[in-house]
């Protein structure tokens, strides 16, 4: 999706590189910095980043941005079975079946949805990376034991796994986050282990070992920093999955039951009952989920390409 001008420029850069000349501006850049540089030039990545930043800002300033209290009830006299008041003065998106302002709920909901996405991904990454480091750094029987455990976790389809954990922990927001995190642990563990094993045999790791650098230092100082880029990419993509999965769990009745914290997934799930009366009640939270998920996905995909040396020019 690059424009013609840009493609031409890339082509020139490539020819220049083949001719032995170093293209200006890329002299001695580290992989991370050149990746960042390419991301900044990539319109798709920018769209993704803008989406993410906008929603983060909305979430951060939700109480200031929301015109109304998200749990206060209005227009109750006009709500009847089969009729929910639509958009009007003061209620740009109308109210839900309990008379709560939809726009305010969406704005406040961004907090909870993003929080669930971020916390569950962080938990998943932390646990998955720990397992991955254990397996990738020690190898041998530790690797076998850890990877068999990961295989077992992977053998349950993700939503079923989340259901199992969620039923066990009960219904609250922490259970929801942990349930989603558990489904991500095996992915990160496998990813990091694979990428660390690939780095372990590399020249610099062998050189460090030959120089007598302590094993812990080799793992944390050399191998790990060179292995994390696929994890970063996957984490960005996982943020999208986590938010969608939270919606699915809410739909199955395993969400956060606290009504003081509106959340898109729960809003979407409860709006299904009114779909034929006022479809917008479901459409708006769905749009929010789709757009945020799209933002994280776009950013993650482009990050993958930017960090992949295959695409490096």
């Amino acid at each position: 999706m690059t424009s013609l001008g840009e493609r031409k420029r890339d082509r020139i850069d490539m020819l220049a590189a083949q001719a032995g000349a170093v293209p200006t501006g890329e002299v001695g850049l580290s992989l991370t910095r050149s990746a960042f540089r390419r991301l900044r030039r990539d319109p798709v990545a920018i769209i993704g980043a803008v989406i993410v930043v906008v929603f983060l800002v909305v979430a951060a300033f939700a109480p200031l941005l929301a015109p109304k209290d998200p749990i206060a009830q209005y227009l109750l006299s006009e709500i009847r079975p089969g009729s929910i008041p639509g958009a009007r003065e003061g209620f740009p998106l109308g109210v839900d079946n309990l008379g709560r302002d939809l726009l305010s709920r969406l704005i406040h909901g961004s907090r909870q949805s993003l929080l669930i996405g971020v916390v569950s991904t962080v938990l998943g990454v932390a646990a998955g990376m720990t397992l991955g480091i254990l397996a990738g750094a020690f190898g041998g029987w530790v690797d076998t034991v850890v990877m068999r455990f990961v295989d077992i976790l992977l053998s349950i389809p993700s939503l079923l796994m989340a259901i199992t954990v969620s039923v066990l922990l009960g219904q609250n927001q922490w259970a929801l986050m942990i349930a989603i995190a558990v489904t991500q642990v095996p992915i990160f563990a496998r990813l990091l282990r694979g990428s660390m094993l690939a780095q372990r045999g590399s020249d610099y790791a062998v050189a460090a070992r030959a120089l007598g650098v302590r094993p812990a230092r080799i793992v944390f100082g050399h191998v790990l920093p060179n292995s994390v880029s696929p994890v970063i990419v996957q984490a960005t993509l996982s943020l999208a999955t986590a938010i969608i999965e939270a919606a699915a769990l809410s739909f199955l009745g395993l969400g956060d039951p606290d009504i003081a914290r509106p959340e898109w997934g729960a809003m979407l799930a409860s709006a299904q009952a009114y779909l034929s009366i006022r479809p917008w009640l479901a459409v708006w939270p769905a749009v929010c989920i789709i757009v945020v998920a799209l933002g994280f996905t776009l950013l993650g995909e482009r990050l993958r390409e930017a960090l992949d040396p295959k695409f490096r020019r």
């Binding site: 699915a248 739909f251 769905a286 989920i289 996905t297």
Partner: peptide
């Protein structure tokens, strides 16, 4: 295909 992976399945079904 980007939209396809971003949409909650049950919403699409409804």
């Amino acid at each position: 295909s980007l939209l396809g992976v971003s949409i909650p399945v049950f919403f699409l079904a409804y």
